[in-house]
């Protein structure tokens, strides 16, 4: 590929401009399911980071040996291996968190973000660039997870990483740690970004497109 991206760009791209969760809406399943506390978000983010990094390195290293026809299967095989490892390690080292994340660790396998980076980047670039890209994307994912996790834990439990923020009298918004809260938090993030983009790129005038020539007066 003769793209003109610099190493620096490869690193920072995934963090914000092409944030996998907030921009591309990839990997939503873990981003919504396990972000009810900061600790869970962190664990999930790190596990995903580990899998992404491992598979990117491996795929990039062995890209010459993987025939085009079976590349997806090979990628999935590699990813699944790392996920299984992550699963086992978490279960052995931090069983409490492993229990909280439940099946969602295994589901990292089908996180489109990871497969997407292999297909779009690692399989075409040198190992060093692949590592940078994986770092950027992984951090971007982690940031998104932590944003979700902090908002949801803060409002849903009144705590951050388990430490009380609002004091004892706080009435937690339980919805935030329930499923609707996940959708809601991400939805609000996306709305905020839509609002921000509208501000910076000049909001399209919010005019209803009445057909040309229809004389109307909107309710004042």
């Amino acid at each position: 590929m003769k793209s003109a991206t610099t190493a620096q760009y490869d690193l920072i791209r995934g963090i914000w401009r092409e944030n996998p969760v907030l921009i591309h809406l990839l990997g939503l399943c873990p981003a919504l399911a396990v972000t009810n506390t900061v600790a869970n978000s962190l664990a999930m983010g790190l596990a995903t980071f580990f899998v992404l990094m491992g598979s990117s390195l491996l795929v990039s290293t062995f890209k010459r040996f993987i025939p085009h026809e079976v590349r997806i299967s090979a990628y999935i095989l590699i990813i699944a291996t790392f996920v299984t490892i992550a699963d086992l390690v978490l279960a052995a080292v931090v069983p409490e968190i492993h229990k909280a994340l439940g099946a969602f660790i295994a589901l990292i396998v089908v996180n489109c973000m990871i497969l997407g980076r292999q297909e779009a980047f690692a399989s075409k670039r040198p190992v060093s660039r692949a590592a940078l890209d994986a770092t950027g994307t992984g951090i971007g994912f982690l940031i998104a997870m932590l944003m979700m996790g902090s908002v949801r834990e803060l409002l849903g439990n009144g705590t951050l990483l388990g430490y009380s923020v609002f004091g004892a009298g706080f009435e937690p918004w339980i919805i935030m740690i329930l499923p609707p809260g996940g959708f809601l938090t991400l939805g609000v993030f996306l709305l905020a970004m839509g609002w921000w983009r509208g501000r910076t790129e000049g909001a399209q005038a919010r005019v209803r497109r009445w057909p040309h020539g229809v004389a109307t007066r909107r309710a004042a």
Partner: peptide, 8 residues
């Protein structure tokens, strides 16, 4: 519904 889920 929001209140019900938030402050049961």
């Amino acid at each position: 519904a929001f209140l019900q889920a938030a402050f049961p």
